[in-house]
Design a protein around this nucleic acid. Structure first.
Lengths: 220, 220
DNA sequence: CCAAAAGTGTTAGTGATACACCCATGT
DNA sequence: ACATGGGTGTATCACTAACACTTTTGG
């Protein structure tokens, strides 16, 4: 029988949002060694008495001030040598924040936090580039085959806003009529009765997601 | 800044195979406490200098004697209290073994190893029931949308054998003509030129998977 | 009246489903 | 000759993809 080796376990968060017609990821500038002053995914150690998901939620609140958002376990990275401090295993989570609530808060070991467009990611600490790429892949996949996309929108939204999210994340143009036809046939949104206001063109109907906020369904 | 708490990290394996027209999972009877003499998923502690995947492969060889089989990370379970020995985080992997090679070997802390049909699973140690259910769900999903199914077959196989695997795992009947039409249209198998022998009915063409063994492709 | 985004239908093609009979072999 | 599983084609239906003009508002 082997001894029971122990490792440090962390959670890392890939927090996505959409602003200015671009998909953004939250990065923090590390305030401590190792990789001090380098950009990294937010994250931290899992405490003794909390579950992995609780740890992810706690870090999210500590570093962004938001809670009750969509959170999903992504993958666990545990190559020996991925952290110079010794054996550290990290469980990566990905989170989606809607474009309204992004008041980022700084925490103890975070000197700075910032949204970066996924096309302009600086060099990242640890193996965070790899983790981020994996998260992006998962996001694209989930967007096509589930309703996660709604998590990036406020409670009511126009169909064009929704289509925009798809176009930005999948970076391809979609046909407006086909998009709407498909979406409406799924019977997962309903008209709110309200319209956009103050736009210098025809106002758009605001829709709402029929399902519970946070609920994701497969649309294969 | 928090202290850096340490946890034990294990890998658990969900090893599937198909025999006797039934989907089987490998279970071991625990030779040591906790849960001594209870059935559990094979697995063990991750050593200091090995990656998670290496740990999974090592355990697989130790407990089944097989290597070079399909292995995929499933999910990481880390509820506090899931192991009475203290905080233990487990990274679950799932593996598929083809029906030829299942010579199970016993290892030090394993008093017995056995294939159990997924319909007749005994009470399991720890939260292994939950882990197994998750693995089953993933297997069904992957079977429908990727080519993992081939991992359960020997190098050459008949189309009926393949269809059988689908029917067993998804537990529903499939139409023979449609199944073959779809499969052949994907252009991922080719005739080997050989036929089954010694059957008391028309011999069947043996096909082989065009891709590298172990390669999985999406067929959405 | 101009600019800007909202909204709306039809057609053609592709893939999915449903369905029944003949073939090759061993006993 | 019979039992057993192997092997094949066609018609219908549902979904996807391509495509262009009219509407409503603010300035």
């Amino acid at each position: 029988m082997h001894a029971f080796p122990k490792s440090s376990v962390t959670v890392d968060l890939i927090v996505f949002t959409i602003t200015d017609n671009s998909l953004k990821v939250l990065l923090i500038k590390r305030g401590i060694e190792p990789f001090k002053n380098m950009w990294a995914l937010p994250g931290g150690f899992v405490l003794e008495d909390e579950s992995l998901e609780d740890a992810a939620k706690r870090e999210l609140v500590e570093e962004t001030g938001v809670k009750d958002i969509y959170l999903e376990q992504l993958y666990t990275f545990g190559e020996p040598g991925r952290d110079p401090r010794g054996r550290v295993i990290t469980v990566a989570y990905f989170a989606l924040i809607n474009s309204q609530i992004q008041k980022i808060r700084a925490s103890t070991d975070v000197s700075e936090a910032q949204w970066y467009s996924v096309n302009k990611i600086p060099k990242l600490a640890f193996d965070h580039k790899k983790i981020l790429d994996y998260g992006l892949q998962r996001l694209r996949w989930k967007l096509e085959y589930t309703t996660v996309g709604f998590q990036l929108l406020p409670k009511t939204f126009t169909l064009s806003q929704l289509q925009n999210i798809y176009e930005i994340i999948l970076h391809k143009q979609l046909d407006k009529r086909n998009f709407r036809k498909k979406l409406l046939s799924l019977d997962i949104v309903e008209e709110s009765g309200e319209f956009t206001e103050g736009v210098s063109h025809r106002p758009a109907m605001l829709y709402k997601f029929k399902k519970r906020i946070g609920e994701i369904i497969e649309i294969l």
